[in-house]
Structures are given as structure tokens and as C-alpha cells.
């Protein structure tokens, strides 16, 4: 007999539903509009390290397939709505990321993404904090810059550390065979392998990411005059829970970043996928000043239930679906 049972228990599903309800109530009170954009698109995310699942669309069963992509986040579509005058919006729904499977990952997961007009990254962190505190019993959330968390947890001064020194710090703890040329890769390794586990007993917003890791955030001047990304991430219980930006609104810069991502993909021999030019067009027509954030809802439920594996909070994992 095949194993037909859910990987979660019914009691956890009640908690999950209650979390969904609190989220919707919060945004309803805040007068933020719920939207549900397309999950299936002709374009894919440009990010080199986020792989989209491909789907074959056919006009009729024997027709030649058109390749479409399952969305890895509703970001592009939501920004098109913002540019069309939607006002502040949120979306609670499924997104898909190829290859991501583990204790904290399922290739199909539930993401909460929202955009607030007129807020910057700092004000949006206040908003995230209020929402998370509706679900989790945690006190005020500390804020710490990217540079400061490296100093605090690893004693590394990023402004003075060469990539070789970052690699050396990593090799002290974990063996890895990787070339030295990609500084951001070493930063990501140190963050995910060493710093994240050290954050297991605290909640912290890590702010002012390196400008090289800005993704779709605008660039601003940091505390000491260094250019940084207006980007933050929230870590709770050693898990990356949310990622937010003071959004980039400059369409030319947006075009440049999409092309740069495509170039990186080419260099790394990763698949070249159609870029979402409608996003660039939307920004050119005018994206209102806003801040946006994406939050992993399954991980939020994991924290609420003190679960150690994502399978404990979703009805059926990928391997059971």
C-alpha cells in the first residue's frame, strides 16, 4: 500500500490556517489590497541562483510546446500592478523553486509578499515586525548591519578582509572546493554555514547588504559613507524568514541588472531564460516610491509550532504530492 497520509498532522493544519487568517486580517485592517497574480508566466526570474521550473504549454495536445515558467516569487507581476496604480498590495500564495529540497525547503512553498507605498526599508522593518509578532511570541527585533554581524559573530571586518581571508575563515570550519574569485559566494557561505546557525536563539534584522547583493533594492549610503543595498533580511531561530527592499524604481538600472544577471548566467553556464521586459516597461512608466518584502510562510508556521522540518507544517511535501 502506498503511503497516502499527510506529512503534517491535522492539528498543525489548524495552526497554519490560523496564521493565514491573522495575515489576512492584518492587511485588511491596514487597508492593503490582496491580489493573486499569475503563477505561470512566459518569463522567468533573472536571478542566477534561483532556478525556475519549466512547464510545457500546448495549444492542442499534439502541438509544439511553448516553454513557460512557474513563478519563483510574484515580484515582477506585483510591481506591474503597483505601476498601474494598485496602491499597497499583498499576495499570499504558492511559488516554485527548482531543486530546493531539504529541512527548510520544499520546491513548492507558500510566500507572503507585500508592497507599501511611501515606506523605505527602515519603515518596512517596523511593519514586518508587527506582522511577525502577531504569530510569534518574540520581543522587539534587533537590527544589525551586514558588516556588524560579521564583526560580532566571526570577528571579521569586511571592509578590511580580502576574499582570500574570507575563504580562510570558512576553511577553518568547513571544507569546500571553490575558486576564490567570487567574493559574494564566500560571504553567502559564511552567512549560511556559520552565522545563521549562531542566530538560532535570537531574532535579528540584518540590514545594509553589500551593494553587490542588492538584487532589486536601490543603493543608498550606509552609516560610514559606504554604498550599500537598501535591503534587509529577517532571521528568526537561525532561519532566513524574510527579505525586503526599498525598491529600485529606475528602469534603466533595472534593465542593466537584468542584463548583468543574464551575463552571469552565461558565464556560469546556467540556462538563459526570457527576461521580463514588461517589468522594465512598468518601471519606465513610473513605479511609485515603495518598499516590499517576501516572507516564507511555511517557515513562519514552523517557528510557531517549533517544528524542525518543513514537512511538519505542509500537508504534502513534494515527494508525497
Amino acid at each position: 500500500m502506498p503511503d497516502w497520509k499527510p506529512t503534517t498532522c491535522i492539528k498543525s493544519l489548524h495552526k497554519r490556517a490560523a496564521v493565514f487568517a491573522s495575515i489576512r486580517q492584518y492587511f485588511s485592517e491596514q487597508e492593503v489590497l490582496e491580489v493573486d497574480t499569475a503563477v505561470l508566466s512566459q518569463c522567468a526570474v533573472s536571478d542566477p541562483f534561483i532556478d525556475s521550473l519549466e512547464v510545457s504549454f500546448r495549444g492542442y495536445p499534439e502541438a509544439e510546446a511553448e516553454t513557460c515558467y512557474l513563478q519563483t516569487s510574484p515580484e515582477y507581476a506585483m510591481k506591474r500592478l503597483l505601476a498601474a496604480g494598485s496602491g499597497s498590495i499583498y499576495q499570499l500564495g504558492k511559488v516554485f523553486r527548482n531543486g530546493e529540497e531539504g529541512r527548510f525547503h520544499n520546491p513548492e512553498f507558500t510566500m507572503l509578499e507585500w508592497y507599501r507605498l511611501g515606506l523605505d526599508d527602515n519603515a518596512l522593518m517596523d511593519d514586518v515586525e508587527r506582522l511577525v509578532q502577531l504569530v510569534l511570541d518574540i520581543g522587539p527585533i534587533r537590527r544589525c548591519t551586514y558588516n556588524d554581524i560579521f564583526k560580532e559573530k566571526l570577528g571579521l571586518d569586511l571592509q578590511k578582509s580580502s576574499t582570500a581571508q574570507l575563504a580562510e575563515a570558512m576553511h577553518k570550519h568547513v571544507e569546500i572546493d571553490m575558486s576564490l574569485d567570487d567574493r559574494d559566494a564566500w560571504l553567502n557561505l559564511l552567512m549560511s554555514h556559520l552565522i545563521e546557525p549562531m542566530l538560532k536563539d535570537e531574532s535579528v534584522f540584518i540590514t545594509d547588504y553589500p551593494a553587490s547583493q542588492s538584487a532589486l533594492a536601490r543603493i543608498k549610503e550606509g552609516e560610514d559613507g559606504e554604498l550599500v543595498a537598501a535591503r534587509f533580511e529577517l532571521f528568526v531561530g537561525g532561519m532566513e524568514l524574510a527579505n525586503g527592499y526599498h525598491e529600485l524604481t529606475d528602469s534603466q538600472e533595472q534593465q542593466r541588472r537584468l542584463s548583468a544577471d543574464q551575463q552571469t548566467r552565461k558565464l556560469l553556464k546556467l540556462p538563459q531564460r526570457p527576461l521580463e521586459q514588461r517589468l522594465v516597461a512598468a518601471l519606465a512608466s513610473g513605479l511609485p516610491d515603495c518598499a516590499g518584502v517576501a516572507l516564507g510562510v511555511d517557515r513562519l508556521v514552523m517557528l510557531a509550532l517549533n517544528a524542525s522540518h518543513i514537512e511538519e507544517v505542509i500537508p504534502f511535501t513534494f515527494r508525497n504530492a
Binding site: 529541512r103 559566494a185 552567512m191 549560511s192 554555514h193
Partner: peptide, 14 residues
């Protein structure tokens, strides 16, 4: 064995 993947970074298996 643990799958490690920062939202925006490369995937690793630790």
C-alpha cells in the same frame, strides 16, 4: 546531510 540555500545565494549540500 543538510541542504543549504540562502534565498539569493548559491545552493550547497553541507
Amino acid at each position: 546531510v543538510e541542504f543549504v540555500k540562502p534565498g539569493k545565494g548559491q545552493a550547497f549540500t553541507r
